[in-house]
Amino acid sequence: MQWKGVMPAMTTCFDPQLQVDHTFMARHANWMIDSGCTGLIMLGSLGEAATLSTEEKIAILNNMVQTAGQRVPVVAAISSLSTAESVSLAKAAATAGCKGLMVLPPYVYKGDWREMKAYLSEVITATPLSCMLYNNPVSYGTDFLPEQIAELAAEHSNLQAVKESSTDVRRITAIRALTNKLSIFVGVDDAIVEGIAAGATGWVAGLVNAFPKESVQLFRLALAGKDEEAFALYRWFLPLLRMDTVPKFIQLIKLVQQETGMGNERVRGPRLEITGHERDEALGALAHAMQTRPAL
């Protein structure tokens, strides 16, 4: 498992009956792989995992593993209400052929570090797969501090990466100061250039679902230290990248996919497709981006 590069947090496509559209998801995955993405992360927040049954999750993983083949690794996001359910899903992901796991804190319950460490340890040790810890205190209310992340990494050889989504790029340098073992991924789209400058070597991306070539190019320019070119592309991209950082990010990213011809905006409840001024603002930002889209 190579934790590096741009890995999409893939959306889950639904057909008109709100069933998983596996045929489209395979086409979508191939498009992003062909555009230079280095892995596929399935069943995350953007993938609407909380609305999927266990059977649907496993079917998605099987489809993506078959689609990706040996080209890029498939990573399964592991999230649930209970430790037992997370462990079961981790084992199912390994059986399906996934190469890595992205381990989230449990839904709903926000425990202390003793409880969270015990939970994470059970999931990480459930399989021999390489693991990424997902730290997103904004969305999940559980904040894994740099000291705690380093402690967990020291105890588990297969914890090899962290997705840092606290929105504070100082966390990247703080983690790096405590351990060199972990690959650090930026988990919020509108902090990618700053995150790479601070030492990140990967990006779990959202708008990549609609703009994979631009996402990969931005990452490569920033990683190569080509600041002028990177910031020129970044300035163009930022109004769209900021859609990844608001509560309705799933609806917004799926709307952008629909309007750019790679997907649809269908979401499962309790989410609803965006309407009114929110929709107008999003479509306005996208229209401007399409009119000024740079040649790569």
Rank of each mutant, 00 (worst) to 15 (best):
M1D: 09
G5T: 09
P8S: 02
D15Q: 08
P16T: 05
Q17E: 14
V20D: 05
H28F: 11
I33M: 15
S35T: 04
G36C: 07
I41P: 01
M42Y: 02
S45E: 02
A49F: 15
A50H: 12
S53R: 11
A59H: 08
N62D: 15
A68N: 04
G69N: 10
R71M: 04
A77W: 01
E85L: 02
E85K: 10
V87S: 03
A96S: 14
Y107T: 07
W113Y: 15
K117D: 11
A118Y: 12
Y119E: 10
T125Y: 00
A126T: 06
P128N: 11
C131P: 09
Y134A: 01
N136L: 02
P137Q: 09
T142W: 12
L145T: 06
A150D: 07
A150T: 08
E151P: 01
A153W: 12
A154V: 04
Q160L: 07
D168Q: 12
V169E: 04
T179W: 14
S183K: 10
D190W: 10
A191H: 14
E194Q: 15
A197S: 14
G199V: 06
W203A: 10
A205H: 11
L207N: 10
V216T: 09
L218D: 05
D227C: 00
E228Y: 01
F231N: 13
L233M: 04
R235N: 14
L240T: 04
D244R: 00
K248H: 08
I250A: 03
L252R: 13
V256D: 01
T260I: 03
G261S: 07
G263I: 00
N264I: 04
G269R: 12
T275E: 14
R279E: 14
A282P: 02
A282Q: 03
Q291D: 15
R293W: 06
L296F: 14
L296T: 07
L296I: 15
